[in-house]
Design a binder for these strands. Structure first.
Length: 189
DNA sequence: ACTATTTGACCAGAA
DNA sequence: CTTCTGGTCAAATAG
């Protein structure tokens, strides 16, 4: 009864795969070709996009009314991290919008790279533009047409001062290693 | 056996 | 008060 929506016509013509181009970076090590199905763990590239340094557990997926973009809901895997992440992807696999909610209050699990201090991140040229997604105003961005006015009352302002030495997320989209950006979405962070 | 992911159903806030 | 949409939980499935 409550289920009346849900895309009547699911275009499953082509799945979301084959997007994997190749690791431009020298990641080395992560290349297990376990591509059995096309659902779990797609390419690392995608995961990379979602992985901003923390682990997320998907706890739901819904789609908004305006677009058919499946919105995935992720939550930090930490036992006390009220951080949630909303990721809206396009049918092409391109992230249309990413909304961070809350603030982390725990160290980053990712220790394979960047060992406390120094360890220059990748050689991703491009200046370290602080593209840090302000969670406080996560409602902004593409939500211009949607209701805004502070939808994130969460301002715990938990001093996460811990290992934020260079917490500036890397993810430098530049480096010409992406295809994204072709929509009128000239949002800038 | 556990964890992560998936999918549907349910709930809550807004209109 | 009813309807709608977004958001979250929970059971099932997959690895």
């Amino acid at each position: 009864m409550v289920k009346s929506e849900y895309a009547p016509m699911q275009n499953f013509s082509h799945e979301i795969s084959s997007i994997q181009a190749n690791n431009t970076q020298s990641n080395g090590g992560f290349q297990s070709n376990h591509n059995q199905y096309s659902q779990p763990c797609q390419s690392f590239r995608e995961q990379r996009r979602l992985d901003d340094g923390y682990n997320w557990r998907k706890y739901g997926q819904k789609q908004v009314k305006g677009s058919e973009n499946p919105r995935s809901y992720y939550k930090c895997t930490f036992p006390d991290c009220p951080v949630k992440k909303k990721v809206e992807r396009s049918l092409d696999g391109q992230i249309t919008e990413i909304v961070y909610k809350g603030n982390h209050n725990h160290p980053k699990p990712q220790s394979t790279r960047r060992s406390s201090s120094s360890s220059h991140r990748i050689q991703a040229s491009a200046a370290p533009i602080s593209e840090i997604p302000d969670p406080s105003f996560a409602t902004r961005g593409v939500a211009s047409q949607i209701m805004e006015s502070g939808a994130t009352p969460e301002n715990s302002s938990i001093s996460m001062g811990e290992d934020d030495f260079e917490q500036s997320s890397q993810m430098s989209r530049s480096a010409g290693d992406e295809f994204d950006e072709d929509e009128p979405n000239a949002k800038r962070w």
